[in-house]
Amino acid sequence: MTPSPGSPGGSPGAAHDVVVGPLDLAARVDEALAIQAEAFGLSQDEMNVRHHIVLRHLATPGASALGATVRSTGRLVGFVYGMPNDRTQWWSSVVEPYLRATGNEDWLDDSFTITELHVLPECQGRGIGRRLITGLTDQAGQARSILSAIDTESPARALYRRLGYRDLARRVLFPAAPRPYAVMGAPLPLLRP
C-alpha cells in the first residue's frame, strides 16, 4: 500500500488521524455506500437500491448518523446510522417472529436500532467502529440498542459482544439475503472495554 499524503504511518485513516463526528449522511450517501460496498461486498445494483432506503430512513424522527473522517483529507472511512426502532418498519416485521420465538420480542420497544455500521477494510481493527457505535448510541434516548449481524463468528460480532450486545435470536433469514443473521441487543449506555 502506498502511503497516502498526510496520513501518519503511511496508512489511510490511521486511528489517531481519524475524527468521529456528526455526518450529513444524506449529502454523503454515495460515499457511505461505497464504503459499505467495499466492506460488505455489494454490487452497484444493491447500492442503488440502498441509496433510496438510506434516504427514507433518514426521514425517520430521531434518525442520526456519525462519520469517521481522516482529519488531514476529509476522506470518509467509516459511518454508522440508526434510528429509534419502529415495529411497523420492514426490519422489525422480519425479526419479530424470531424474537417472539426466543422470548425477546420486547426488545423491539424502547430500542435504538443500529441500521448500518461499516468501516473501510484497510481501516478496520483500529477502534473506529467502536468509536462510531458508542458515539451514536450515547446520543440515543432509548434504554437499549438492537442490531442484526451476519450469524457467524466475526470481528464485528466480537466487537458487539465486548460492548455488551448479546444474541437475542439466531438464524434469522432476511428475504434475498444469502446468509442467516443474528439479532443482538444491549442495554445503553454500551460497555466500554
Rank of each mutant, 00 (worst) to 15 (best):
R126N: 14
G62Y: 10
T69G: 01
R166H: 11
P175E: 07
I53Y: 10
V77H: 03
A59T: 08
V18K: 08
L117P: 03
S4A: 13
P61S: 06
S11C: 08
L99H: 06
R100H: 13
Q139Y: 05
L120E: 10
G10M: 05
R131P: 06
P121K: 10
Y98D: 08
R131C: 08
R161Q: 12
S7P: 01
A169S: 00
G82D: 06
L76M: 06
L25W: 14
E38V: 08
P178G: 05
L25Q: 10
P121N: 10
R157A: 14
G82R: 09
T113E: 15
L108R: 05
A158T: 11
T115F: 03
V95M: 07
S4V: 15
L99V: 07
D30M: 04
L188Y: 13
V119F: 04
E46C: 04
A176H: 14
P187V: 09
S11D: 09
W90K: 05
G9H: 11
L76D: 03
H52T: 13
R166P: 00
L136I: 14
T134Q: 14
Q36K: 12
A37S: 15
S92A: 15
R166C: 03
T137N: 08
E31H: 06
G135M: 09
T134G: 05
A143E: 10
P5S: 14
P121G: 08
L66G: 02
L163A: 07
A156S: 12
L58P: 06
